[in-house]
Design a binder for these strands. Structure first.
Lengths: 148, 148
DNA sequence: TATTGTTATACTCTATAACTATA
DNA sequence: TATAGTTATAGAGTATAACAATA
């Protein structure tokens, strides 16, 4: 007997991972939409909701070019969810900081996702297992710079 | 002892899944870029590389609006990777069919991904396990219509 | 010189709405 | 009427290159 599943190829696993990941992104977007946020804006807000981060730091965490972050933070700032603050130690650097309003919105979005039916498909043990497997793969992916 | 991992929350699992899935998408895009294709074009080509599919069918499989598929297939067709064919049974329907050139390009891209170091992070058993867990979650996600 | 952030540009993806041609 | 596909539109994300301010 060849295990429970019919031995999918490595590429098929990557295709499935990209497909499922994309679907989760869409669900994040759907949860954020009522609050006027996009998925990328949620990711940036998530990255700075606890500790401030520089524009460059955000770009590395999200594995995209720094020039993209300007527009995303522009829109978050216009909505009052974050603010920019020039670093006291290096005046070239701008730190992005979540506002109380931004944290409240993020809390609401994460609350919606917390209730997502997909996560209840798996038991707590399976979720921990899945989490561990994904964590092990991540450093070898393009978003390797992403720390959180 | 609380298992091997410090019990991540449901939301954290979804965030990780979306992050890892996004990174895999980027790696697909990087593998496709030398051939002049984008990640979405690869997904469409993958969907029709064996059997033809209608525009509507592709849209449902990729969980996006049908109007998007027009442009994506336009570009694939201009590059000679697919062709459109009016259905013999319903003249409203157009079936998208991969060309030999399209299949060759897809084979090359999948070959690049097959050698991706990230999949070697896990053993064959772990890959099968991961595949099974993802398959179980997928029906409960927004891309639930996606069959492959 | 090197780095941070921004701007300008061009392209792809995205959803919505309106249109056509078929059924 | 309803459906398949397209077009038009507007917005968001993406990378590249060039730029100003600062180190």
């Amino acid at each position: 007997m060849t295990a429970s599943v019919s031995a999918p190829s490595k590429v098929e696993l990557l295709e499935l991972l990209s497909s499922v990941g994309g679907a989760v992104c869409q669900d994040f977007a759907a949860a954020a939409s009522p609050h006027g946020l996009t998925h990328m804006q949620v990711r940036v807000l998530t990255h700075v909701h606890r500790d401030p981060a520089s524009m460059r730091g955000i770009a590395e965490a999200l594995a995209c070019d720094a020039s993209n972050i300007t527009g995303i933070v522009d829109r978050l700032e216009a909505a009052g969810h974050v603010r920019r603050e020039v670093s006291p130690t290096d005046r070239r650097v701008k730190n992005v900081i979540a506002t109380d309003a931004g944290r409240a919105v993020l809390r609401a979005i994460r609350g919606t996702m917390q209730a997502h039916v997909a996560v209840d498909t798996l038991s707590a043990e399976e979720r921990a297992l899945l989490h561990g497997l994904l964590e092990r793969m991540r450093p070898a992916l393009s978003g390797a710079a992403a720390k959180s």
